[in-house]
């Protein structure tokens, strides 16, 4: 495993820890999109089915279990915890899952490497992950008050796939890693969707101002 890949995974892990910290410490999920969190549960469940089929490494299996467990835990907090769920921005989190899940699934049926159950779900998870942040970004645009933890959570979540892009370039040149258009293009689109957010996040950080996204 190269440094970019490890940095990507750690950034992803850190983003989730930060979100759980926000929820547990402040007993609030204000500014967090339940739609995006539910999409992540679907992404991890469809991608990590191979957990029971192929063993890669202890690291790989552990991370998969952590991502599955924490994503379900976050959704549980937002839907069922008696204090946390009252802080959820129900009226502003209006994006419909359906409009992302269905096109991604159809695309996975049409564009994939092998027509097998596991492979179709794996491809679907990559397509869905690339757009899963959209409900969250829409919610942030509507929010007048984005707290630091939420802003940094989204920043780290975006940075993680960006680091994977470097990992793929590195693997391509050093490990004879073949061209993998499906994850590469999905990852590129996923990172590109954050471009605007990155710009405003870094600008607010440099100017020591509160983060605000233009509507």
């Amino acid at each position: 495993m190269n440094a970019f890949r490890l940095a990507g995974d750690m950034t992803h892990l850190l983003s989730i820890i930060l979100l759980l910290l926000k929820i547990r410490a402040t007993k609030s999920c204000a500014g967090i999109s339940l739609k995006t969190q539910e999409l992540y549960v679907i992404v991890f469940m469809s991608r990590y089915l191979d957990l029971f089929r192929t063993y890669y490494s202890l690291y790989n299996s552990l991370m998969k279990i952590i991502f599955l467990g924490t994503s379900m835990c976050i959704v549980w907090y937002m839907r069922s915890h008696k204090v946390v769920r009252q802080t959820y921005n129900n009226d502003e989190d209006t994006f419909r899952h359906f409009f992302l899940v269905l096109p991604c699934f159809v695309l996975a049926l049409l564009v994939h490497r092998n027509f097998t159950f596991i492979e179709i779900l794996w491809t679907f998870s990559l397509y869905l992950e690339s757009v899963a942040i959209l409900p969250q970004l829409v919610l942030l645009q509507k929010s007048s008050n984005i707290d630091n933890l939420t802003g940094t959570y989204v920043f780290l979540l975006g940075a993680y796939r960006g680091l994977y892009l470097f990992n793929w370039v590195y693997r391509f040149f050093t490990e004879n890693h073949r061209v993998r258009w499906i994850p590469w293009l999905s990852g590129l689109i996923q990172t590109a969707i954050y471009t605007d957010f990155f710009y405003y996040y870094i600008r607010s950080w440099k100017n020591r101002e509160k983060l605000k996204l233009p509507a």
């Binding site: 191979d50 192929t54 490494s57 993998r180 499906i182």
Partner: peptide, 10 residues
């Protein structure tokens, strides 16, 4: 061998 080595990623 055409195993997808992307599957070892997360």
């Amino acid at each position: 061998d055409d195993d997808d080595d992307s599957h070892d990623e997360l």
